[in-house]
Structures are given as structure tokens and as C-alpha cells.
């Protein structure tokens, strides 16, 4: 049986300290499938028991993938509990949290309104109330305080676990990007570095536009996760502008949706993404050890340092 080469000894990783080359994603565990609602439901059924999720995570670990890039969905807290209870066993396991779990907020906004939703998720209501009373004379430090409190609330479930990279989810990143709220990126990056000794990461569907704004916000050599796939699926700005960004911009790229939700055959998808410059890491989801191994072996085969 052929053993895949250890990715950690290869080129790309050396230029990106701390960023694992293969990340295990979590969409499959939460009924998210961009191709089919039927498949999404079948997955939700299969992973209803958190034990089934942990089994797949263990299988991923056995295949050498011990970094789990996951949303701050309530159910992730159960996985965190499991790992905390066996510190020896999961010594090398790391989370890359992606926050916030947006639907939690979107539904809260429908129920309580914009400010009500923020209040609901803030541990300390006093701060927001004071800010609202202050009206438009709101100070920057209040906004900073609010963003950092929301981050801390999302990070609570990971207490005592390794979180070397913390991502801001694309819905928030792209909303802030669209609104021109550049300070939010700086505030998030600084807080994540200072409070959690972690690298800030940003997920986006609009890579070229985000890189410009991160640069303006003073976030240097950022970790940015975006769709990078051969057919240009959800790569806003177009395939060519993404390829130019990968060639020319200073950032650490994490590729997601490399299979474009199954629209590209695995070998073709991996071969293409591995041939792109500056891709430091690939995140993918799978529900079985066989699929995890297939992807790992494809990456090992095609990833040229």
C-alpha cells in the first residue's frame, strides 16, 4: 500500500507557518449541501447524533487531518466538550473557528430587530444600552467593545482548546466589505491576536475586493479563505481576477469549494487547485474515511512545493 507523503514537510507550509495545508470542514455535518436539499437532509439525519460527527473527525485524524475548520454552531460545543474531556487523546487537535454562525443572528434579527439581536448575543447589555442612549455621538471604542464582546461570546465554547486561526464568516466579512466598514477588519484582527494569540482569518466570496480593503485597513499578509475552483463557481470578480490575485497579492490563500459542490470531478479539481500559485491550504468536507483518504492522496500527488 502506498503511503502519501507527509504534506507538512512540503513547500507551501514552510512559507505559511501555523497554517495547516489540509483542513477538515464541517458543512456536511450541518445539512449544508449546495447541490441538493435531499442530500443535505440525508446528511443532517446521519449526523444527528454528535457521536457520528466525532467518528468522522477521528477518521480524519487517523488520515492525518487534525485541524477542524468549523462554524460556531451550537452543536460544535458538544464536540468541544468531548475533546476537552480527553486532553491526551486530542492533544494535537486544533479548531479554526469561523464566526458567527450567521443564521442564528439572521433569525434573531427577524424576531427582535437589529439592535435587539445584538443585545441578545452580548453578554453585557449595559454597554449597548449606553451606546444607544449616546445616539450618534457614539465613540469608536464602543463599537470596538461591542465587536470584541461578540467575538468573545462566540469563542466561549472553545475555552481550553487550540484555536490557532480564527475566521470571520463570509456573510459578515462581505457585508462589512460592501458597506465600507473597514475598521471592523482591523478591530477583529487586533482582538484575535491580542486576546487569543491567534491569527485572524477572513472568509469571502469577493476575494479581489476584500484584499484591497484589508490592505487599506492595515491587515498585513492576511489569511483569506475563498472559493477557488476550476469553474469559477462563486468567485466574484471572475476566475481571471482570482488568478491574478493569487499571483500578485501578498496574502495566504485558503481554498474552499474546490470541487464546486461536486460539479468538478475530484482528481481534476485537486489537480487544478494545486497548480495555482500561493494556495497555502485547502479546506474540504467528507463524510467517510475513504473520501477523506482519496482527497488527501490526491492533494499529496498534485501539490508541488
Amino acid at each position: 500500500m502506498s503511503t502519501a507523503p507527509d504534506l507538512r514537510e512540503r513547500g507551501p507550509l514552510q512559507s505559511a507557518p501555523g497554517l495547516e495545508p489540509l483542513l477538515f470542514g464541517d458543512n456536511q455535518f450541518f445539512g449544508i449541501n449546495h447541490m441538493s436539499e435531499e442530500k443535505a437532509r440525508a446528511q443532517a439525519l446521519r449526523f444527528q447524533d454528535i457521536g457520528a460527527v466525532i467518528d468522522v473527525l477521528d477518521a480524519a485524524r487517523e488520515e492525518g487531518l487534525s485541524t477542524f475548520m468549523c462554524t460556531t454552531h451550537d452543536r460544535i460545543a458538544l464536540i468541544c466538550d468531548h475533546m476537552r474531556a480527553q486532553p491526551e487523546r486530542y492533544r494535537d487537535f486544533a479548531f479554526y473557528p469561523c464566526m458567527p454562525y450567521a443564521h442564528k443572528y439572521a433569525n434573531a434579527v427577524t424576531e427582535d430587530g437589529m439592535l435587539g439581536a445584538v443585545k441578545r448575543f452580548l453578554p453585557d447589555e449595559g454597554l449597548l444600552n449606553a451606546a444607544i442612549r449616546g445616539g450618534s455621538s457614539l465613540a469608536t471604542k464602543d463599537i470596538e467593545g461591542m465587536i470584541t464582546l461578540l467575538v468573545d461570546a462566540e469563542m466561549k465554547m472553545f475555552q481550553g482548546l487550540q484555536t490557532p486561526v480564527i475566521f470571520l464568516q463570509n456573510l459578515v466579512v462581505d457585508l462589512m466589505l460592501g458597506m465600507g466598514f473597514k475598521d471592523a477588519f482591523r478591530i477583529f484582527a487586533e482582538h484575535v491576536r491580542e486576546r487569543y494569540d491567534a491569527e485572524p482569518g477572513f472568509i469571502t466570496m469577493n476575494l479581489p475586493a476584500l484584499l484591497d480593503v484589508l490592505e487599506q485597513a492595515g491587515v498585513e499578509n492576511p489569511i483569506v479563505c475563498s472559493n477557488i475552483n476550476k469553474i469559477g463557481f462563486r468567485m466574484c470578480g471572475g476566475l481571471e481576477s482570482y488568478r491574478a490575485a493569487l499571483r500578485e497579492r501578498q496574502f495566504r490563500a485558503v481554498a474552499m469549494s474546490v470541487f464546486a459542490s461536486g460539479a468538478i470531478p475530484p482528481a481534476e479539481a485537486i489537480e487544478w487547485v494545486c497548480a495555482q500559485p500561493n494556495v497555502k491550504s485547502i479546506v474540504f468536507g467528507a463524510s467517510s474515511r475513504a473520501n477523506i483518504r482519496n482527497t488527501r492522496e490526491l492533494v499529496a500527488e498534485h501539490w508541488q512545493p
Binding site: 447541490m35 460592501g178 469577493n206 469559477g232 466574484c236
Partner: peptide, 17 residues
């Protein structure tokens, strides 16, 4: 027919094309 083959690209993506 899947959305991946039917959907045209957009200039900016936020919550859905």
C-alpha cells in the same frame, strides 16, 4: 440541472446570487 451550471456570475456576492 444544478445551480452550479445555471447560475450566472455576479459582481459582488453577499447572501446569494
Amino acid at each position: 440541472r444544478y445551480t452550479t451550471e445555471l447560475t450566472d456570475p455576479v459582481w459582488f456576492y453577499l447572501r446569494g446570487e
